[in-house]
Simulated assay, not measured.
Amino acid sequence: MKIQEKDGTIVDVFAIYWLENETLFLGLPKNYGGLISYKEKNVHVIDSTLNGEFNYFSTHINGIYHWALIKEALLDDIIERDEVAYNRFVEILKAEGRIDPDFY
C-alpha cells in the first residue's frame, strides 16, 4: 500500500489501525529511521493493495499489521525509532522485495 503526503512524498504503508473512529496508517518514509503514523484524512491513498503477509492484531488498538511487526515484536521499538528494530524490519522488507535494496 502506498500513500502520498501533501508535499508529494510517497510512503509505503505496513499497518492500518483504528483509533477513536479514525483510520491511521503506519508508513516507513526514507531517511526517518522508524514508522510514522498518518491520519487518513491528511494523505491520499495512491495504491490500496496490501502486499505480503499481514495479520489482524487486537489490543487496545486494533489493526492490520505486517507480520514482522507483531511476530518479531518490532512495532513499539520501530515507532520509537530504535535502530536495531528498524534495521531488522528493513532487512525483512528487503528480503521480501517490499522495498528497494538501496532503501537504507
Rank of each mutant, 00 (worst) to 15 (best):
K41C: 13
I36W: 14
I70S: 01
G33L: 05
T9N: 14
E83W: 12
P101E: 04
V45M: 10
D77E: 11
E83M: 14
Y32H: 12
N87M: 07
F57R: 02
E80Y: 15
E20R: 12
D12N: 15
I36N: 15
Y86K: 04
Q4W: 12
F54K: 03
N42R: 14
F57W: 11
S58R: 14
S48C: 01
T23S: 04
A68F: 05
I16D: 00
D7C: 12
Q4H: 14
I79N: 07
L19D: 01
T23K: 12
K41D: 13
I10Q: 14
L19Y: 04
L24P: 00
I79G: 08
R88Q: 06
T9Q: 15
A73N: 13
N51Q: 09
F14T: 03
Y32P: 02
T9G: 10
W18R: 13
N62H: 09
L69W: 03
K2L: 06
V90S: 06
N62K: 12
E20F: 11
L35G: 05
H66S: 05
V43P: 10
A68I: 05
L35F: 07
D82F: 14
D82Q: 15
L24K: 13
G8K: 07
V43K: 15
D82P: 15
G27K: 09
A85C: 08
G52V: 10
R88L: 04
I78T: 11
L75M: 10
I64K: 04
F25R: 05
T23I: 09
E40K: 14
V45G: 08
F89L: 10
D76R: 00
N62T: 11
N51V: 10
D7L: 09
A73P: 02
R98Y: 07
D102H: 12
V43H: 15
V13D: 01
T49F: 00
K94I: 11
D82H: 14
V11M: 11
Y65R: 03
K39M: 09
L35V: 07
K71L: 14
E20Y: 10
N51Y: 07
D100N: 15
E83S: 15
K2T: 00
I3S: 11
T49P: 12
V13Y: 07
